[in-house]
C-alpha cells in the first residue's frame, strides 16, 4: 500500500474519531473564544489604538489554541495502545506523521475561521486588503501544524509532555508568529509591497524546511 493511500486512510480515521468524540475540537474552539474575550477585555481600547493589538491577539490566540489540540493529537493511540501498530505501517512512519499534521491543520483552520472575524469585530478593525493576511495565515497554520506535530510526537513518551510541549513549540515557531504579526500589522495599516513579501518569503522558507525535515525526524522519534 502506498504512502499516500495509507496517509489518506489514517487521516480519514483521525477525522472520523474527531467527529465522533468532538471533545478536542469543541474545547479548542471554546478556549480560543475565551482567549479572544480575555484579550478584548484586557486591552480595552477604542478607535485606532485598539487596532494595534489585533495582530498580536490573533496570532497568540492561534498559537495557544494549536498547542491545546496538539496535546490530544496522539490521545487515541495512547488510549488503545495502537501507537506501535500505526508507527510501523507497511509504508513506514511517514503516513502517521502526515495524517496527524493534516488533522492538526484542519483543527487550526477551523479555529482561525472562528477567531479572525471575532478579533476584527471585538477590536473594531477592518481588513480592506485581506490577501496578505490570508496568505500569512495559510503559511503560519501549515508551519505550526507541522512543527507542532513533530513536537507532540517527540514528547509522546515523555511524562511531563503537557508542560514541555509549549516550552519546545513556542520558541521554535516564534519566527512564524513574528512574521505573521508583521504581515497582519502592515495589512491593517494599509501598507503592502516589499516588506510584506519579505515576511511571507520567510514564512514560506520556514515551512519548506520543516515540511522536508519533520517526517524524517518524526520517524526517528517513533523508533524510540
Amino acid at each position: 500500500m502506498t504512502t499516500l493511500r495509507l496517509t489518506w486512510l489514517l487521516l480519514q480515521k483521525d477525522l472520523r474519531i474527531a467527529a465522533r468524540s468532538r471533545e478536542v475540537l469543541g474545547f479548542t474552539l471554546l478556549f480560543s473564544v475565551l482567549c479572544v474575550l480575555i484579550f478584548a477585555f484586557g486591552f480595552l481600547q477604542s478607535g485606532s489604538a485598539a487596532v494595534r493589538y489585533v495582530p498580536g491577539v490573533l496570532w497568540v490566540t492561534l498559537l495557544f489554541a494549536s498547542s491545546m489540540s496538539l496535546l490530544r493529537l496522539f490521545a487515541a493511540e495512547e488510549e488503545g495502545g495502537t501507537l506501535p501498530l500505526v508507527s510501523a505501517t507497511t509504508a513506514g512512519t511517514v503516513p502517521l506523521f502526515l495524517s496527524k499534521a493534516g488533522v492538526q491543520l484542519v483543527f487550526t483552520t477551523l479555529v482561525t475561521a472562528l477567531v479572525l472575524p471575532m478579533v476584527l469585530l471585538f477590536f473594531d478593525a477592518r481588513l480592506d486588503a485581506p490577501g496578505p493576511v490570508i496568505a500569512s495565515l495559510l503559511l503560519g497554520l501549515v508551519g505550526q501544524s507541522v512543527v507542532g506535530t513533530l513536537c507532540a510526537a517527540l514528547l509522546v513518551h515523555v511524562r511531563l509532555r503537557e508542560v514541555l510541549l509549549p516550552l519546545v513549540l513556542y520558541p521554535t515557531v516564534a519566527p512564524l508568529v513574528i512574521a505573521g504579526v508583521k504581515v497582519t500589522s502592515m495589512a491593517l495599516q494599509g501598507q503592502s509591497g516589499q516588506g510584506t513579501t519579505d515576511w511571507l518569503t520567510l514564512m514560506l522558507v520556514f515551512d519548506l524546511v520543516f515540511v522536508a525535515a519533520s517526517p524524517w525526524l518524526h520517524g526517528r522519534a517513533m523508533q524510540r
Partner: peptide, 19 residues
C-alpha cells in the same frame, strides 16, 4: 520497522484498538 507487523503480531494489556 515496517516489516515487523507482517511477521509479528502481539496482544498485550491494551488491546491495540481505536476506541
Amino acid at each position: 520497522v515496517h516489516e515487523l507487523p507482517r511477521h509479528v503480531a502481539s496482544l498485550h494489556h491494551r488491546p491495540g484498538l481505536y476506541f
